[in-house]
Amino acid sequence: MAEVKLFGTWFSPFSRRIEIALKLKGVEYEFIEEDLSNKSPLLLKYNPVHKKIPVLLHNGKPICESLVILEYIDETWEGPSIWPSDPYERATARFWAKFFDEKCVPAMWKVCWSKGEEQEKLKEECTQLLKILESALSGKKFFGPGENIGMVDVTGNFIAYWFGILQELAGLQVFAKEKFPNVGEWIDEFLNCSIIKENLPPKDKLTAHLQVRFQAVAASK
């Protein structure tokens, strides 16, 4: 039995965050693919509050919520540090990680599925969020200190990869490298990292999966 197990889904940016962190740390793990339309008894047992993936199981003990799991991984295993060690820089990283999860991901997800006036409002919101990220990356290669991928970059994986595919499928252009060059350079650096490339879902497979969802939404209207 594997000491470390990860309950997730192949297409989830939140699951992929955990896989990236485990790979950065060199931790061996067993990935357990969940069917979110028919959640397993084990997932419901290990995350009875939110009933969501990802869930990390370490020595039989479950840890839930991706940001919490990322901190746990960094504190539990040796290897390259994901979180900054300096208290101020660590607090700043937590701020930006929450900014991604509470502001960026919801708005950028919703804008791709909305229409009309609602979509126009969300496009403006996303543009403002991207302006904030553009400013935060001024003069920097990654969000954290130093020249290496860190916690904040890992939590930004949705923007770096999923959002571009969603934009294309929705026929939108909220983000463009010409408008946000700093963000564009960060995306290129992030996606060109070998560990990141190895732990992202294949673009054609993810595109096909999301296309089915777009078709289902269109058919329901």
Rank of each mutant, 00 (worst) to 15 (best):
V4Y: 05
L6I: 14
F7T: 08
G8K: 01
G8M: 03
W10I: 02
F11N: 05
F11L: 04
S15M: 04
I18M: 06
E19S: 10
A21T: 07
A21L: 08
L22T: 00
E34G: 08
K39G: 03
P41C: 05
L43Q: 03
N47V: 02
N47Y: 01
N47K: 03
K52P: 08
I53Q: 00
P54S: 06
L57Q: 07
L57T: 03
N59H: 14
G60W: 10
G60L: 09
G60K: 11
I69V: 02
E71I: 14
Y72R: 10
S81Q: 14
W83V: 08
P87Y: 14
Y88A: 09
E89A: 15
T92C: 12
T92Y: 12
T92K: 14
A93V: 10
A97S: 13
K98I: 12
F99W: 06
C112L: 03
G116K: 06
E117N: 12
K121F: 10
K123W: 00
E124A: 12
L130V: 04
L130R: 00
K131D: 11
E134F: 04
K141S: 13
F142M: 03
F142P: 02
V152L: 09
V152S: 04
I159P: 01
I159F: 13
A160R: 07
A160P: 07
Y161L: 07
Y161P: 03
W162H: 08
G171F: 01
Q173V: 12
A176C: 14
E178T: 11
E178V: 13
V183Y: 04
G184E: 03
E185Q: 13
E185T: 13
W186S: 05
S194E: 14
E198D: 12
N199C: 06
L200Q: 04
P201Q: 10
P201F: 05
P202D: 10
K205E: 09
K205F: 04
Q215C: 09
A218F: 14
S220H: 13
K221R: 15
